[in-house]
Nucleic acid binder design. Sequence first.
RNA 1: GGGCGGGUAGCUCAGCGGCUAGAGCAUUCGCCUUACACGCGAAGGGUCCGGGGUUCGAAUCCCCGCCUGCCCA
Length: 1080
Amino acid sequence: MPKAYKPIDHEDRIRARWDSAKAFHADPTRVTSGEARPYSIVIPPPNVTAALHLGHALNNTLQDVLVRAHRMMGYETLWMPGTDHAGIATQAVVEKRLRKEGKLKGSLRQNYSRDQFVADTQAFKDEYEAVITDQLKRMGCSCDWDRQRFTMDDVCARAVREAFFRLFRDGLIYRGKRLVNWDPALQTAVADDECEDEEIDSFFYYLRYPLVHEDRQKSADASRQQAEDAQPVTWNELAARGYPGADQHPAEEEAWVTVATTRPETYLGDTAVAVNPHDPRAKALRGLFVELPLVGRVIPILEDSYVVLPKAMARSEEEANDPKAEFATGFLKVTPAHDPNDYEIGRRHSVDGAMQEWSQARGRAVMVNMFAPDGTVSDRHGWSDVGDAKMLVGLKRQDARKKVVEEFKARGLLEATRPYRHSVKISDRSKAIIEPYLSDQWYVKVTDPRLAESANRALAGRHQGTEASRHQGKADGDGALQFHPARYAKTYEQWHDGIRDWCISRQLWWGHRIPVWHRRIDLATAQADNFFTEQCDEALEGNHHGCYGIAVDVATGAIIPPGDLYPLDSSIGMHRLPRAGLIDVFICDIVETDWSPAGFVLDPDVLDTWFSSALWPMSTMGWPDPEQAAKDTGIRDMKDMLAAFNPTTTLCTAREIITLWVSRMVMFNRYLMGAGQGKGPVPFRNVFIHAVIQDGEGRKMSKSLGNGVDPLDIIATHGADAMRFTLCQMATNTQDVRLPVVKDSATGKNTSPKFDLGRNFCNKLWNAARFAVGILTAAPAAASRGGSAAPVSAKSLSLIDRWMLSRLQAATAEINSAVEHFEFSLYAQSIYTLLWNDFCDWYLEAIKPTVAEDANQRAVLRSVLDAILRILHPVAPFVTEAAYETVGTLPAAPVAGLRLDAPRKSGLLATAGWPVIDASLRDEAAEREFSQLQGLITAIREVRAQHQVAPKRKIVLHVPAHVAEHWRHHAVTLATLAGLETQTTDAPSGSNVVFTFEAREYAVSNLADAAAVDSGAERARLEKIIADSEKLIAVLEGRLANPGYAQKAPPHMVQQTKDQLAKAIAERSAAAESLKKLGS
RNA sequence: GGGCGGGUAGCUCAGCGGCUAGAGCAUUCGCCUUACACGCGAAGGGUCCGGGGUUCGAAUCCCCGCCUGCCCA
């Protein structure tokens, strides 16, 4: 074995051995046959948008630790790998790339073919999927690579279509016109989590809207000419109506109200002005209208308590302290199609009251959409009464804003402009400002109890009310889900309590096409238009395989049952003529029928990426048709995967994913699997949420900050194991962990000094193994390979060997518990202490003089080293496997109580048995005795260091006569580790140093050739001992002097304190005695 | 606004009712002691954020405050 462990010399070779042995291939039949218990994890599929970063490295390292440990523990272990198509992210990246390459100019939709774009993106995906897979392999991830999936491959696509179909059929997917977050650059709806809030410096604009009377009679039949119909209201009249402050204005002039807005351009879409009912001006305004300048639209004034009262009118301190009160005028322009709050106001008031009356009387829309999908002002998407505002049409939002402000100013209607800092929503992908936009979208009705409520019922600990409910629950998958750390269950639960329906359509090209065909038809002409084909009838009646249709009344939005649509007249055996009216017919088709000959159009949109991700624990295992999946992939045992591995054991992910992904997987798995209807099994029993890695300043690692660390750079410089060990060591149960980032001056790449820890540790292991191999090669542990020698019994072993086995037993127990409880940092800490401090610093040093002669000791050395390699393997798979290539060939002599099962595949450590160590090997007496020995050795070393005794010099230890017999048993160890020539009970003659150990006086002599002993240093040393003892004595005496202590503290505590005090006093007097001698 | 973390040695973190509060890195001193200088031996270094309370006893539990980070609206 070479002197230093160089990862680069081993990692590729080791990986190739694992691959060729199919060491990580999971066999579902071993589970279904009952031969082995399952352990399974599905990888959170990385986006194919970019290479993996350090967060992925952490996430995947932790999964691999779990997976490797359980594989060794004998579970049939599956780690399912794969990647995610990441719709919007990937589309944005590819679009940007095409522009950079000059292949795309202007609008993607108008200047590029959809098929070509999908092909380009597919190529991009192939490229990055390969990069990602390579990265995972380099990290040592023990995934079942033969089963790798992609969220858009055939198997997963079938799952998506089937899930959509079932949800659609069961009424859990619907289409609706709602206000969504619209990205005008990418021209698609985006989810809240695809946006960020950003503070910007902007303005509040104060716009005056002239008050008018509406001329009902004329307007009813001539709404286009409202401008002329409306009659101005004067201040005089307002004063007469009791409007406070109206008399401050010239009596005959036209009156107005002032609205405050940060987005003046949206006034084109205003359909009301709202005032708080508690506003003293409200009453005087009842029945009045305002007229929008330029547009000429006359809109009602309505009362809604959502409106913030101006500070001066605040009725409570709370209202006065509302930062908006500072800027409010008390009048709110209501733009339902372009603001979420206004949308709600619009909805509230279009049910009854002023707005309903207004909209019905005039046939006006409450929602006026004045933007095109690209964010320019448009009169073609729901805005018709343009009037004199024609000049604004076609302008971008910013330009429109300028123009509107200018026009108001020119008319004396701009009252003021005040600087205001507020936050706006920015699209993550395009950085465009999000526009609330009214559009037709598909929704999953997650608010249905069969989904959201089912997800919460899955939580463990929720159903502890009654024995019956708990019992009943388990069978359903209720109560089967557990979070680690447990506090995250709250996040999950609260999310479902406040959940809103999930918008699943995206106006993108990259993704799963929504499998719905649409046709709008007038029932009056339906028969003539050949609408009622047999196929169509069957779809609407739900009789056509793989097709399910619904008809929606365009006017009311209500679903029309097929029976109502064209009732069958049984007397003549034919359909009667259908009723009249416009209907929308939607046919969900997952057998890929071409409905275009029947006049249908396939929905152009794709599904939100999370829709396919939500099916991941099912789709990767062949749902809904495992037999077909087996045929498609050529993997025969694919048909058994669901039965063997779903529910999976654990999902390993980050915090923000709880709402995005965890929730949806639970809902879908429970709805679509097993008993279904929300009563099916959970997709995983445990959710482990790990920390987020930040840089040294507590900032997120990001490309724009340039503070990211590339896992491949660390693997290149430190090795995969070093990276993994360090990441594990950092993985505590807190929310985030910091990793100081520095730029390597040689390479210019980001790295962190923390990774040295892992590298040093791997090298330490390598050298310990190398040393042991040297010893065991010279003199094997057992006479012959595979010899039937009886196991070495701990009873026949030396103290040092019993101590080592005891330490190994304790550490293994600690690690077993750490694995079970997701305590990765503790795992790393335990193995570090075991290997470095116990095994290397003490055990290997202590056995040097004896191991060549002691076959039993060699048996222990061989076994302990083997066990260490095994328990370290999940964290550092490469270096342990590499060491095992040699260690595994050494003849072994078994140690009683320590079971080390042979590897299952090709002699690979990765498939070897996890050490099973009998509790009887725990030897507390040996630990106590050895720790005392360590104490004396340390005390001697301290004196040596203090007196600058040459490291190679052998010194003489003078021990008190009554403990001489005791230390004689440890003479060899003492001599080796403390550098003794001999130990004696004789008093030192000549130059020497006296020291105390366990309150007894010892001495060392022969420290130097010259007789000089530095009495100053010795004095300082003793004085420090005295000072420390005194500090301790004061503390302990104080504790005992406290009357409550003796009475209330447990007796063993009191006794312990007394013992400590006695010891401290003895320590102090011994040191004082020595000091006195030194002084004389 | 609601929820959840963190504040302990110069740095990164353990400890979460009772060890004179620990580890790694960094620092200082001495060593190329034939496994390892990616190493060995030794040392120095802390009003455990502040203030109250509970308790015989608080870094640890409770309350208030300050700072800091994240998630969801």
